[in-house]
């Protein structure tokens, strides 16, 4: 059984165990190490990617469920929103250990794709599933708000 899907804009085929979580397929089969393992049970958000443009936790998505879909990992980000978000992350010195930040960034971009100008409550709700043990939340919030302003301008 092979699974065909689009990954960061390119058609790919996966021929390993179809039950493999997308997380490990991305990391170990496609060599995309930006997506991280943090919990394996959709509790921490470190593995967040976009599937058909929506936030998705790759640790609980079997690669078989990606058939025909379009997957974007942090390595495949393009566009003004992604640029603004990642720029704000660097400008505000958001990362500490940095391990959760791929997931945080993917979640933030997913949010801004749906709400251009999020309120604090929108950010709280959207980011509730992304844990940062260094607790950079204050700066993550500021970076999302800054990125939203930049995209709007």
């Amino acid at each position: 059984m092979t699974i065909e899907f689009e990954l960061n804009g390119k058609a790919v085929t996966y021929s390993g165990d179809p039950d493999t979580p997308l997380l490990w397929a991305l990391r170990d089969d496609f060599g995309l190490k930006g997506t991280k393992y943090g919990c394996g049970v959709a509790q921490c958000g470190a593995c967040t990617v976009h599937v058909d443009g929506m936030n998705r936790r790759a640790c609980v998505a079997p690669v078989s469920s990606m058939e025909g879909r379009s997957v974007t990992s942090i390595e495949g980000l393009t566009g003004a929103v992604a640029e603004a978000v990642q720029g704000a992350w660097v400008a505000l010195n958001v990362p500490q250990c940095g391990y959760c930040q791929s997931g945080q960034i993917m979640s933030a971009i997913g949010l801004l794709g749906l709400i251009e100008d999020p309120s604090d409550a929108d950010i709280d709700a959207a980011m509730a599933g992304n844990i940062c043990r260094c607790v950079t939340y204050g700066r993550i919030r500021s970076a999302i708000l800054q990125a939203a302003q930049k995209v709007k301008a």
Binding site: M54, R56, L114, A126
Partner: peptide
Amino acid sequence: AEGLQCSTCHG
């Protein structure tokens, strides 16, 4: 919520 839909985790 937008950005953390049910479908973010539930397939």
